[in-house]
Amino acid sequence: MHSDAIRLLSSCTYELPQLFASNLRKPSQMRTSLLLSLGVTGFQKQSVGMKFKDQLFKLLQRLETTKPHFICCIKPNNKQLPNMFEKDVVLQQLRSSGVLEVVKISRSGYPTQMTHQQFARRYGLLRLDHEVSQTPLSISVAVLDQYNIHPDAYQVGYTKLFFRSGQVFIIFYVNQHAC
């Protein structure tokens, strides 16, 4: 019974409601002392929504602390039979998993990619002009311009730099000899 109803019964002037309230209060007092011994501070029962919210919060905290790794498996056929290959099924899985986009980028000649933050962290100290804007994108472009990296050797995206094969080595090699 709700604690307000029990208090109402205890405040009655008649003996029967008071006796009823005292009998109801004993199990709730035992439950309260049990909850306190377990470390629970709230005296009210948790609603289903609050339990769900707490569980969701704990799950998100756990996910933020982990570093998940995924392995993409391609099923050769829908019947799961050995030695049977359905090219339409495999092609559809490759399209939906994004593998074809990675292959297209590699074929277009920009197999190496790096975020602007990674590039700025790695090569940003090599800039001679430190008065340029300090955003990772501007640092990346300034380093590439400073060392005369040909514009055909890379592409600048909103969040990443895409390099032709071997260009990161050339930048590293140039930086070793420049110092």
Rank of each mutant, 00 (worst) to 15 (best):
M30D: 04
D54Y: 13
E101C: 02
M84W: 08
Q134M: 05
V132H: 02
L19D: 08
L63M: 14
S11R: 09
F162T: 07
D152F: 09
F20P: 05
D145C: 11
S97I: 05
K79I: 09
D152A: 14
V174N: 09
Q167Y: 03
D4I: 06
I71A: 15
V132C: 02
M30H: 10
P136G: 02
S33I: 07
L137H: 04
Q155W: 03
L91D: 03
Q29T: 09
T65C: 14
G166K: 10
H130N: 07
Y14H: 11
D88Q: 06
S97E: 04
D54V: 13
V40F: 08
G166C: 08
L9I: 06
K160D: 04
V141Y: 01
F119H: 02
R62E: 13
Q167N: 05
K67Q: 12
C179K: 14
L60E: 14
K26F: 08
A153F: 08
A178H: 11
H177L: 15
S28E: 10
P82Q: 10
M30L: 11
D145H: 12
S108E: 10
K75A: 12
P136F: 00
Q46Y: 11
I71H: 15
F119V: 03
K53D: 14
D152Q: 14
V40Y: 04
G98S: 01
T32K: 13
S47K: 13
D4R: 07
I170M: 11
N148F: 07
R25F: 06
N23F: 08
C72G: 13
L38E: 01
A120Q: 01
Y147G: 02
R31Y: 05
I71L: 14
H130L: 11
F169I: 13
S37N: 06
G166Y: 01
V89D: 06
V102M: 08
S140V: 02
G166A: 05
V141W: 00
S108R: 08
Q146Y: 01
I149T: 02
N83T: 06
I170P: 00
L24R: 04
P136Y: 01
T32D: 06
G166T: 04
L9F: 05
Q118C: 01
M30T: 09
Y173L: 14
S97M: 03
L81D: 07
K53V: 10
K26A: 07
E86M: 10
Q155A: 09
R31P: 06
F169D: 15
L60P: 10
K58L: 14
V168F: 07
R121C: 05
V89T: 11
T159P: 00
T112D: 04
L36R: 12
R122A: 07
G109H: 01
Q146F: 04
R7M: 11
L38W: 05
Q18L: 08
S133G: 01
Q44P: 05
S140K: 00
H116C: 00
V132S: 02
C72Q: 13
T13E: 11
G49P: 02
Q113V: 05
K79W: 05
L144T: 01
V132E: 04
G42I: 10
C72I: 15
N23A: 13
R31L: 09
M30W: 05
S22D: 10
I170D: 12
R62T: 13
D152E: 12
F172Q: 15
F169S: 13
P76I: 08
Q134W: 05
